[in-house]
Design a protein around this nucleic acid. Structure first.
Lengths: 244, 244
DNA sequence: CGTTAGTTTGATGGTCCTCAAGCACTGTGG
DNA sequence: CCACAGTGCTTGAGGACCATCAAACTAACG
């Protein structure tokens, strides 16, 4: 991370704001402290307080809420380039749990480091909070979709949304993307049973739209999926820096 | 509003932070500019930008998102004491629409006024943003509940949640509260058809739990409702000021 | 007194859950 | 090398929940 090869977060923020040398340097310094977590073991528990934030450079994490009846709702996925637990830091307590999908080694960002960085470079703070707001809006959009769309449209929308997020950091395209999720993850994300997830995937595959198989999502008919999902591809397309 | 009788917002914020004389004065000054809106006519449209924020001292407003298929999802209700469109101001554009449930006369808060007030009294800013974060968390909680609970539990949870919000500003208790919503509003809120809303209400009434009738919600068995909904009453009970 | 908005009830059917069982693949230990 | 367990995927059958269609009823209002 010391070379001129930028981290996924840097790449993502550059889509919003043209960052200066100084800002890039501050951003890189936030990546210094590393920690390790193994797949399937919660990094943060719902209700925990005094939590640090993390920056994910590789691997996948999901954030979820446990329900009274024991089921869980996956609320969001963090992919390379995402901040994790930013809200926990700002609100001093976490209302989500975080579970690594695969083994990860995120950078740990202490509250004090974050505040220092924000004071030094307000434009960087703006960029980060901007990205956070965008993510928050996507969460609401996603949750609204769950209550309203039918299972196949939900699935199609989710896969397209995820593909867009990954494309922002260069990990996917309209052809497809690598995806370590199980069908159980999809079930908890979409509010469906695992059994029904499987049926829906089969249906989408047989209709020649998309294949989910062996850790890979392959789009066969991108336009068809967009139509089925009622997906609005513009709300992620930030075509250039908004601040120069 | 010039007397020693405080506005609902003041009352609500006082539950979080003990406000000084100066802060109270600044808060009252934000209430000066009044505007009128009639029931059922959108105040703000999804996608609109450069919007002011509003403070609601009386009446009800709902915020909602339109779906691709034409249905709508009501995301939140603003009741007396709530800020409205705070996020639109911060993000410069609105991703919700706002519709008054009854005729309302909210105070309009211009972006410049808000920023000025925040600079003058940072503690007031903290209190307002704190309240906003709490509301945001409730929105996510609510949307998650929609995908997971069954209709009767959804309804029970919603009515309890609403009752708690109203109790915070002195407009409700464990006995019940006045409620100008129609069953169509409930349907769009809970992601149910209006017909099914009616059936669920009948069922809850016949089980002696709660009555929704003639603009009034009456709790007959508060404990029973809490049990049915899996409602956690603590996450709203701010038993005293957190900052003194 | 017709109109409109809101509420109520019945009948029918689709989506999706639950229960149940079988298959494929991987890693582990005898 | 093979039995075994564990994890994840796949398919079938039956039924619950809730949407949709249809229609009647009430209250408010011009």
């Amino acid at each position: 991370m010391t070379s001129n090869e930028h981290s996924p977060l840097t790449r993502k923020l550059s889509a919003f704001v043209a960052l200066s040398e100084v800002e890039l340097a501050v951003l890189e310094r936030l990546h210094q402290r590393r920690r390790s977590f193994v797949a399937g073991r919660d990094m943060v528990h719902q209700g925990q307080s005094e939590q640090a934030a993390f920056i994910l450079s590789a691997g996948w994490v999901c954030s979820y809420k446990l329900q009274a009846d024991g089921s869980r709702q996956i609320v969001d996925f963090q992919v390379p380039g995402d901040f994790l637990g930013l809200r926990s830091v700002l609100l001093r307590t976490s209302d989500h749990s975080f579970e690594p999908i695969v083994d990860v080694e995120p950078a740990e960002v202490l509250t004090s480091d974050l505040i220092e960085a924000f004071t030094q470079t307000p434009r960087l703070a703006t960029a980060i909070l901007w990205a956070a707001s965008r993510d928050e809006a996507m969460v609401v959009e996603h949750l609204v979709g769950i209550g309203r769309r039918e299972a196949d449209a939900r699935m199609a929308h989710f896969l397209l949304e995820l593909g867009s997020k990954l494309a922002l950091v260069g990990l996917g395209s309209k052809a497809g993307f690598d995806c370590p999720l199980t069908q159980y993850h999809l079930a908890d994300t979409l509010g469906l049973s695992a059994v029904h997830v499987n049926r829906v995937l089969r249906q989408l595959r047989e209709h020649g739209l998309v294949t989910f198989r062996d850790g890979r999502v392959t789009f066969h008919d991108y336009g068809g999926l967009v139509a089925l999902a009622g997906f609005d591809p513009t709300y992620l397309d930030q075509t250039g820096p908004l601040l120069t």
